[in-house]
Simulated scan of single mutants.
Amino acid sequence: MPRGARERRVRHSIPGRPDHQRPLLRLRALLLDRRRVHHPLRAVARLELDGVPAARLAQRWGVPQCGVFQRLPSSLDAIHDLGAQGAPAGTVVLAEEQTAGRGRDGRTWHSGAGGVWLGMLFRPAQTDLSAFSLRAGLVVADVVDEQAGRTLARLKWPNDVVVGDRGRKLAGILCEGRWQGEALQWLALGIGVNVANPIPPALADRAATLTEFVPAVRRLDVLDGLVPALTRLAAHGLRLTDAECAAFAERDWLRGRQLRTPLFGRAAGVRADGALLVDTGVATAGVREGHVELA
């Protein structure tokens, strides 16, 4: 660690576990700031993202503060820690590498150097956030297509951005809220995008990187489109608009495919509240939670 650098240890907020049982999250190699740094965060190293000093990223993207870490267990967990400490909405955390990246249901996300491992803090007024991850997926897909110069990204309910007929995973979205009684305290959004990071051989038939399609793309190119668009998500209504439903339908990778779970039947699109529609042969049912397995 460079001379004069400091290391801050922050409690990792896991609901339902006593403080003494909660692991400590070590926040290292952090540079921030649009105007002033939120008190628990301190600049402790000189990091750059694709040649841009981390201290300039917040101003570049119009967010209150941005932290860049050499290594984190999870950028999403870091956002939860910062949310508990009162960090402002729009706070962004980026990790060069995640050692314990995760997706839905605790699945492992391989997060090596070269990818975009992003966490972002929201404090929305509304409490029904069923459509939030689908909106985030539309944003990611638009950014991917902009970089590719063509329609490339498709969406797989509930939280995957995929490419090709095989549905190789390019990006994933995970939203987690923290509540006090009936009141939503904050929402943590985690987004992982495979840009130029190595894909483990065992996952090569199920995952893809953006550099396969756009060899010269940089993480900064992706983030320049992604972060400013994400800041506007909390201003949207509870339900997807007609235009958003149409945009999702154009990218819907699941539609028409036979499913084993979350219900046995044929995928029939998504509803405005974010639910997956499944034609069971008897009726069309809406499913708001669960993971998908093809039959």
Results as ranks from 00 to 15, higher is better:
L276F: 01
L187K: 12
G90L: 05
D224C: 05
W109K: 07
T241M: 09
V44C: 12
P2H: 03
R218C: 04
C245P: 00
R8V: 15
R288Y: 03
R232L: 12
G62P: 02
H38T: 05
R8H: 08
L170C: 05
V68E: 09
A5S: 15
G119T: 02
A148K: 12
H20M: 02
D33T: 08
D142A: 14
R42V: 14
V63K: 11
A55C: 01
A29G: 15
P40G: 07
P18S: 05
V63L: 11
R166A: 13
L238P: 08
L277A: 09
L72R: 06
S74P: 04
V193Q: 05
A148W: 02
H12E: 15
W253D: 00
R178C: 08
E244H: 03
I79R: 04
R219W: 03
D142M: 00
A5T: 13
V143P: 00
S130W: 06
A283L: 10
V161W: 02
H291Y: 03
P15A: 10
P124Y: 10
R154A: 13
R232G: 11
G62S: 14
L134P: 06
L25M: 13
S75R: 08
E176V: 01
A29Q: 13
R60L: 15
A55K: 00
L25F: 03
R255M: 01
V282M: 05
A45I: 01
G286V: 00
V287H: 07
A136T: 13
A285R: 14
R3T: 10
R35T: 12
H39C: 00
P124R: 12
S13K: 02
V227P: 01
L31I: 06
A188W: 07
R178P: 02
A29V: 01
R257H: 09
A208H: 04
L49S: 08
